[in-house]
Design a protein around this nucleic acid. Sequence first.
DNA 1: CTAAACCTTCCCTTTATGGTAAGGTCAATG
DNA 2: CATTGACCTTACCATAAAGGGAAGGTTTAG
Lengths: 131, 131
Amino acid sequence: MNIGEVSKLADVNSKMVRRYESLGIIPKAGRTDAGYRQYSQNDVHVLRFVKRSRELGFSMKDIKQLVSLWKNKSRSSVQVKSIATKHIDELQKKVNEIQAMLNTLNHLVKNCHGDQRPDCPILDELNCHHE
Amino acid sequence: MNIGEVSKLADVNSKMVRRYESLGIIPKAGRTDAGYRQYSQNDVHVLRFVKRSRELGFSMKDIKQLVSLWKNKSRSSVQVKSIATKHIDELQKKVNEIQAMLNTLNHLVKNCHGDQRPDCPILDELNCHHE
DNA sequence: CTAAACCTTCCCTTTATGGTAAGGTCAATG
DNA sequence: CATTGACCTTACCATAAAGGGAAGGTTTAG
């Protein structure tokens, strides 16, 4: 099948299919005489794996490794687990950072009357009185 | 003072000082005959405001508006509040997304024995059995 | 044969933060 | 005076992920 069909079946934009190929995440597709990429049902399978990994926030770099491990039947699960654990740590760190911002912002917004008057605790805080 | 000093005082990389200028977040600095940018204590103040805003995760676009409102003494606090509220919504949405990823990932990792054996619930999940 | 639908590669855009290169300026020191 | 080192300038490149759009070749249906 052509790239358009594999793209539809895997629900991955064809632009991204080409990109995954250029990044080495999926193997280089065979070509017709005219240069059109050709795909099989198995490629749909791989692309869905990639898509699901992206939905879980894995980086392209991690996904490349995950696909490789997935294909390698003699892998050890500890390798996979360590990639996932590292990713969890990064996500947790990001959540903590954003949550800290939210705590501050929610506090500021609660104290801002939000009317036509110019005085504003939000700007006051940004103004770094505390430094 | 030169860009190096204002950069140190505001704790903003001089690269970023130039960038903020090019984005119109801070006014264009005056120049010496040799072309060196010149800054005053007030510029330190503005840069600290920008830095604090970045720490709270505001986008450059938002910060441009916030600085403008901050300087405009006839602003109404409702304008500031609406920028902050929109930002809170975006951050909250991001936290929810990441938290959903974390829930899934934590579950998967808990069920993966993580040893030398090849069978791995993490890869099984990514494999989209459920679709 | 032509027009639509599909494919190709290449460059551009976004967001924020920098690295690096190539070169001009300034101040201190020998 | 000349050199050296610290500082400044602009300009281009890189990151990460997902595409938009151009310019052009191919295929298929009418």
